[in-house]
Design a binder for these strands. Structure first.
Length: 514
RNA sequence: GCUCCCGUAGUCUAGUCCGGUCAAGGAUUCGGGGCCUUCGACCCCGUAACGCGGGUUCGAAUCCCGCCGGGAGCACCA
């Protein structure tokens, strides 16, 4: 795609109309090379999540890179659940199929079609037979440790020399229950002298008695991930495989099988590993913590799941820009979440209403307060008058943030957009702090957000680390709706919890970022 | 240990294939200023980088070699 096309896409996403073309690079968007041999309208890509946990921020790159190319070439994007039983350590959780589909909704990456590896065993078996017939595989009965040791040493196990008939017989026994789980595997005959020990006679298929959430124990022989993709990247007509570079060896495996069978498969493109510094959680580990109740479901902000990001008011657009900003770089990177927040701020700031919230509130009684200020209109947005105004309660009784009060004792401060008051020199032993009104004109003073005491709303703010901030918000918050997003001035962007019942207190919100 | 990948400012990224237009561009962060009402936004200014060492060349971020550093794989997980 030319830089102009990239710009065009960003503009289409609503991002860059204000940004003029720059000489060297149009956007902060990374570079995406053309897909080799891609024909507009005939590109088929695939997403292959393993349903062991909700999608998290680390998976977002896979989503958006594939979606980016789908859009560029007007192609199709298949969601293919990689549900090839897994293991005791990596289990498939039944509810995750729906959770992941929901995650794609949240990310705004709708799949064109949804498929399951667990429906495709007959095709896999057919390919296995073809590989066997081509003399490319054998049935190995080595115990796991012995197999690994021999692989490391580059030594063959006795079965490697088995005849075609013996392999066919062994494979038939695997299929019809002649072997117990773990007793036999189908291995690809590569080259035991291959310099990469990881590539020596990889396992193609294995036995498993795990109960599969979708198909139960219908099948006992399951393919390994790379073999299943050797099959389906061809069978499903995938034109380009875009995957993280942790899967490069799988490329070789697939290509080896294709060469053996004389079929042509798609080319591979990779990107490097992306880690968000603040998010160090694996899908499977997260699952355990959700199950144990340690975490508050998949939307717990500590999980950095897509669900939790939505809960925090992080938009799909911000996630998309954030992810695409890295391009197809192969470098392994760790990025601070602030980079994502910066993108989200751009999305949210122009349209998000401002509201007042004071954490850890302290009551302040202002003497000499003009009675005509009991009601006051404030703009919903400092720069965008089209967003209107709201009416809030003024004094003389206010709530101010405890930390603000303590930091400014004895000083004249400005209640933002409202009035100036002088705070006493010391905190009173009990009762409200007594301050005095000084003036109304806008002066260069420390500006504090404030909440008029009349009808103030109790607010419970959930922080991303799982802790809570309790405080009071302006009375208009009483009219909030679930999923509303506000900017609490001098605090940050928050989103009203989707399950909060309107009118109840406290108002529950989830913190996004400053 | 073996295999593969990567190494441009605090953090990302463009440029590296096809050496000069790169005294290295953009984003973000940070610092300063503006906008006389946010610790937000916006605007302006600024700090700041080609991992190291050789080589090829008139000329190297770009090509070659070595080294160092980081990551991934070496599962009957995905």
């Amino acid at each position: 795609m030319s830089s102009e096309d990239q710009r065009a896409e960003l503009v289409a996403l609503g991002g860059a109309e204000a940004a003029p073309a720059r000489p060297h690079q149009a956007e902060s968007m990374g570079t995406f090379p053309d897909l080799p041999g891609a024909v507009d309208g005939h590109v088929v890509l695939r997403l292959a999540p393993f349903p062991s946990g909700a999608l998290h921020i680390g998976n977002a790159r896979m989503l958006y890179v594939n979606d980016h190319y789908r859009r560029r070439y007007h192609g199709r994007l298949l969601l293919v659940f990689d549900d090839t039983v897994g293991s005791k350590e990596k289990r498939i959780a039944p509810e995750l199929f729906d959770v992941i589909r929901h995650d794609l909704d949240i990310a705004n990456v709708p799949p064109d079609e949804v498929l399951y590896k667990s429906d495709r065993l007959p095709v896999v078996y057919d390919w296995a037979r073809r590989v066997i017939d081509a003399g490319g595989a054998y049935v190995c009965v080595c115990p796991t440790e012995l197999l690994q040791k021999r692989r490391a040493l580059g030594e063959p196990c006795p079965e490697r020399a088995q005849t075609l008939a013996e392999t066919r017989d062994g494979w038939a026994r695997m299929l019809d229950g002649g072997f117990a789980t773990g007793e036999a595997v189908l291995r690809l005959r590569t080259d035991l002298a291959d310099p990469d020990p990881a590539f020596r006679d990889r396992v193609l298929c294995r036995l498993s008695d795990l109960d599969h959430p979708r198909v139960g124990r219908k099948w006992r022989v399951w393919p390994m991930l790379e073999f299943s993709w050797a099959v389906d990247d061809v069978e499903l007509g995938i034109t380009h495989v875009l995957r993280g570079k942790d899967l490069v060896m799988e490329d070789r495996m697939e290509e080896f099988v294709w060469r053996l069978l004389g079929v042509k498969g798609p080319p591979f493109l990779h990107w490097g590993l992306l880690r968000v510094a603040e998010a160090k959680i694996s899908k499977s580990k997260g699952y355990a913590q959700v199950q144990s109740g340690e975490y508050d479901g998949w939307a717990d902000p500590r999980l950095w799941s897509l669900d939790s990001l939505e809960r925090r008011g992080i938009s799909a657009e911000a996630l998309r820009r954030f992810t695409l900003g890295f391009g197809m770089s192969l470098a392994d990177i760790e990025v601070p979440a602030e980079t994502l927040y910066a993108e989200n701020r751009q999305v949210l700031d122009p349209t998000t209403p401002r509201r007042s919230f004071v954490p850890d509130p302290i009551a302040v009684d202002v003497v000499g307060y003009p009675t005509e200020l009991a009601e006051v209109d404030l703009p919903n947005h400092p720069e965008r008058s089209e967003l209107g105004t709201r009416s809030v309660a003024g004094g003389p009784l206010f709530w101010l943030a405890g930390s603000d009060v303590r930091a400014h004792l004895g000083e004249v401060v400005r209640l933002k957009d409202h009035a100036n008051i002088e705070l006493p020199r010391e905190m009173p032993p009990e009762g409200p702090l007594v301050a005095s009104f000084t003036s109304r004109e806008n002066r260069r003073l420390p500006r504090l957000q404030w909440v008029g005491a009349v009808h103030a709303v109790t607010v419970d703010l959930l922080d991303p680390d799982g802790t809570h901030r309790k405080g009071l918000g302006e009375r208009t918050l009483r009219g909030a709706a679930p999923s509303d997003i506000f900017q609490f001035e001098r605090v940050g962007f928050v989103r009203v919890e989707p399950d909060w019942i309107p009118g109840t207190e406290p108002l529950r919100v989830c913190f996004g970022h400053v």
